[in-house]
Computed example of a mutant assay.
Amino acid sequence: MLDLRGDPIALTAALVDIASESRHESRIADEVENALRGQTSGFEVIRSGNAVLARTNRGMPTRVLLAGHLDTVPAADNVPSRRDGEILHGCGTVDMKAGDAVFLHLAASICEPAHDLTLVFYDCEEIEASANGLGRIERELPDWLRADVAVLGEPTDGFIEAGCQGTLRVVIRTSGTRAHSARSWLGDNAIHKLASVLDRLAGYQARSVDIDGCGYREGLSAVRIDGGVAGNVIPDAASVTVNFRFAPDRSVEQALTHVCEVFDGLDVTIEQTDSAAGALPGLSQPAAAALVEAAGGQVRAKYGWTDVSRFAALGIPAVNYGPGDPNLAHRRDERVHVGQITAAVDMLHAYLSR
């Protein structure tokens, strides 16, 4: 059985040693469920598929939710774990079994809680959003996601990373007239028309905005170009896929309006193909402000999209906070400095205790 009350570094290693690629989390969910039922006091524990949920109901004035996903990307000859001095190697050490271990250890070791506590360990975060276990819980068990503040154990290098950017993808298409390239003047080259689109992108001035003391910088980038028929044909169709990473003070609709304004006046069509709303940090809320204080003010904006957006949509301030360098996630040499694990335990223990 997992030892929740022992060394959280050893607990991290034990979790890493349980292979849990997305859609194959049943064994780790079994182990987490059994450990929570056997080693914590005052928690209601339930199972939802391969997600495990636990909560206290002590009548505290505030509730803190700690959430972490149990799945990993496919292993790359990096399971089981390996300890080398102050470094723990292995698949999921960073993303995000170190964060899971911190939360499990806290659930079993806090003696004088200052808040009611909810823990959500969910499945299928690393694959398509439609399979995400947190989304299933939101649909089927919404009462379990109610809280005054939520902390996701995503790796943040020991910083609190607040909120997250939104993301929008569009395909911008041009059209022309097909012709033989030996008689190019008889055609209208759709690829050439993309030059005006790329000029707009090259000259784009990204906006920066401060929200709750966190600086979010936006970015508008071409991420794919398609076009061409054959080596001797003037193409009559071409497209560029553009990704807009926007600050969380914009809605998806406002982001799309902005993108359309950037390319206004060009002979193009614009089609939205994907989007996800950002999450406002909400650090002015009392429970979130107390968390920032406990972290010594070590807070910054989250670049990229995470599941904090789900909580923001529910009106719950949410932050990312966990051990590990996010740049090492998913790598063959994924690894975490063990000092970050103990530091996260110490900080959150102080925040969650009286």
Rank of each mutant, 00 (worst) to 15 (best):
H69A: 09
A76F: 01
E86P: 13
I87C: 06
A147K: 07
L117D: 00
H105F: 11
L106W: 15
G133Q: 03
L104E: 05
I110N: 02
Y122I: 00
R47H: 03
L66S: 08
A114K: 04
N132T: 02
A51V: 00
W144G: 06
V45G: 03
D95V: 11
E140T: 13
E31Y: 08
R83P: 13
N50H: 07
R139K: 09
I87W: 13
A129I: 06
A51R: 00
I110K: 01
L65E: 04
R63W: 04
L106R: 12
I137G: 01
S130N: 09
T40W: 04
M96V: 00
E33D: 13
P142W: 05
G135M: 13
A108S: 06
E125Y: 01
M60D: 08
A101I: 01
T56N: 06
I127P: 07
R82W: 09
D143A: 14
Q39L: 05
G68Q: 02
E138R: 15
H105T: 00
F43E: 05
M96G: 06
L104H: 12
A98R: 02
A107N: 04
V52W: 15
R136M: 08
D100R: 13
L119W: 12
I87D: 11
N78P: 12
R83D: 09
V94D: 14
S81D: 09
F121Y: 12
D100E: 14
P74R: 08
P80M: 03
A98V: 02
A76D: 12
V73S: 12
A101Q: 07
L117N: 05
E125Q: 04
V94A: 12
D148Q: 06
G85Q: 07
V149G: 01
V52T: 08
V102N: 03
G99M: 02
F43Q: 02
E138M: 14
R55Y: 04
K97N: 10
L66C: 10
D71L: 00
L106K: 06
I87M: 06
S41D: 12
F121V: 01
L66D: 07
D71K: 00
R58N: 13
A51G: 13
R58A: 09
H69L: 09
D95P: 13
G38I: 02
E33K: 04
E112G: 07
F43I: 07
W144S: 00
A147T: 07
R47M: 00
N57P: 11
R136Y: 09
M60G: 11
I127D: 04
D123T: 10
G42A: 05
V94S: 13
T72K: 15
A67W: 13
V64S: 05
L66Q: 01
A114I: 08
G99Y: 02
R58E: 08
E33I: 01
L141Q: 04
R146I: 10
N57W: 09
D148C: 11
G59S: 04
L53T: 09
N78R: 11
D100N: 15
P80D: 12
C111M: 15
A35C: 07
N50G: 04
S109F: 13
E86R: 14
